[in-house]
Amino acid sequence: MATSALPRAAEAFVAKDFKSELKPIWCPGCGDFGVVQAIYRALAAIGRPPHEIAFVSGIGCSSRIPGYTTAYGFNTVHGRALPIAQGIKLASPELLVLVAGGDGDGFSIGGGHVAHAVRRNIDLTYIIMDNQIYGLTKGQLSPTSPRGLRTASSTYGSMEDPVNPLLYVLGYGARFVAQGTPADMGQLSKLIEEGIRFPGFAFINVQSPCVTYGEPETQLKAQKQRMETLESLGHDPSDRIKAMELAQHYGEKLHTGVFYRDPAPPPPYSHYVAERQGELRDDTLTREHILDVFLPRE
């Protein structure tokens, strides 16, 4: 499978090669600690050196994550990680580009970008750390908060239905859609690794609890009781319709694993860019030639 995520160097990496010296600002017990660990492991398994990885995020507790890795990190602005990541990947297709952020970052302020990232199918791996709350701004409603949730900005209970991140991306035609949790680290790092290896846009929703503002039933302990792997349900991840059916239960049940993986993924966007450049690129052109297009032609 031709994907840029495949290792090129023979060097072997271990998880700690991807751990930076910055000390996370996260609250002790925050689910995001598990996510970053899972990322270290996935990256070690992939084997690309840190300098060939660009890790982009928005703003939020979760979006601090690139700084805790040794990759080239970019902690951008709230909700805009995806467009920036796409620019990076288009400019340097040989890089491995990871994107991460919160549920608010991805599905509220940045929600408009998700559809386009999915349909363009630029080879990115997008990890949402879904805690159903705004952590950084101290506990307001998030787009994935359940109806009725009482938060600082919904004192008497939320009056809206949440976004379903899994259906959202499946609806736009995402070709790799998975859900994991730090409650099962082995599975989570595998899912991330698989997402990275998938040629094209890959989406992984991670149930990463906020210990400070999150609800008791979102915490790891409760998750461990609720979670069911899709594998144990005998789900066939090449079945998109079934994946959508299962994804309906987001919020009620906790299904983990791969919902959908396109069994015959088309080439990602960068393939077409390379093709177009191959067709049109003309190395005999110098910068001076660009002015020739303005020569009047009768």
Binding site: A54, F74, L82, P83, I88, K89, L90, A91
Partner: peptide, 14 residues
């Protein structure tokens, strides 16, 4: 926003 965002990304990429 995405237009300039992609440019910021490309510039970050050199």
């Amino acid at each position: 926003i995405a237009g300039i965002g992609a440019c910021v990304g490309a510039s970050f990429a050199g």
